[in-house]
Computed example of a mutant assay.
Amino acid sequence: MQPASTPTETISQNWAGLTPGQHVTVAEPTGHRYPATIDMITEDHNVVWVHTTPTLQRKAFDRREGIIITPV
């Protein structure tokens, strides 16, 4: 008999302080980190779009994905 598995804890970050044009560092749960600029953020601050630096890819993240966005 195997022990019961425990649910993985999900990181949820409050993005209320982020604003379009702000320079940030994005840290994905995989450990990948990169600079980016905030493009848009929803009114409820649950979804944020960034332009990555230097590739300018546009990515969207939900705050429950475990993404850490830190202002620089």
Rank of each mutant, 00 (worst) to 15 (best):
E9P: 00
E9A: 06
T10M: 05
T10I: 09
T10F: 05
T10R: 10
I11V: 11
I11T: 05
I11A: 05
I11Q: 04
I11E: 02
Q13R: 11
Q13C: 09
Q13I: 09
Q13S: 09
Q13W: 11
Q13A: 12
N14R: 13
N14E: 06
N14D: 15
N14T: 07
W15D: 00
W15I: 04
A16V: 13
A16F: 13
G17I: 10
G17Y: 13
L18W: 10
T19E: 12
T19C: 08
T19A: 14
T19I: 15
P20L: 12
P20R: 09
P20D: 06
G21C: 12
G21T: 11
Q22I: 14
Q22F: 14
Q22L: 15
H23L: 11
H23Q: 08
H23M: 09
H23Y: 07
V24N: 04
V24P: 01
V24Y: 09
V24W: 05
T25E: 06
T25Q: 07
T25F: 09
T25R: 08
T25K: 08
V26S: 00
V26F: 03
V26I: 06
V26H: 00
A27L: 07
A27E: 06
A27K: 05
E28H: 02
E28D: 00
E28R: 02
E28K: 04
P29T: 01
T30F: 01
T30H: 01
T30P: 01
G31W: 13
G31Y: 12
G31V: 08
G31H: 09
G31C: 10
R33Y: 02
R33V: 15
R33P: 01
R33N: 08
R33I: 14
R33F: 12
Y34G: 04
Y34C: 10
Y34K: 03
P35Q: 14
P35W: 14
P35M: 14
A36H: 10
A36D: 05
A36T: 10
A36R: 09
T37R: 15
T37D: 03
I38T: 03
I38D: 01
D39I: 10
D39S: 09
D39T: 06
M40P: 00
M40W: 04
M40N: 00
M40Q: 03
I41Y: 06
I41D: 01
I41C: 04
T42E: 04
T42N: 05
T42V: 05
T42I: 06
E43T: 08
E43F: 08
E43V: 10
E43H: 07
E43W: 06
D44N: 11
H45P: 00
H45K: 14
N46I: 08
N46T: 11
N46W: 11
N46L: 10
N46P: 00
N46V: 06
N46G: 04
N46K: 13
V47R: 11
V47D: 03
V48K: 08
V48G: 06
V48Y: 09
V48R: 09
V48M: 10
W49G: 02
W49F: 14
W49S: 11
W49C: 08
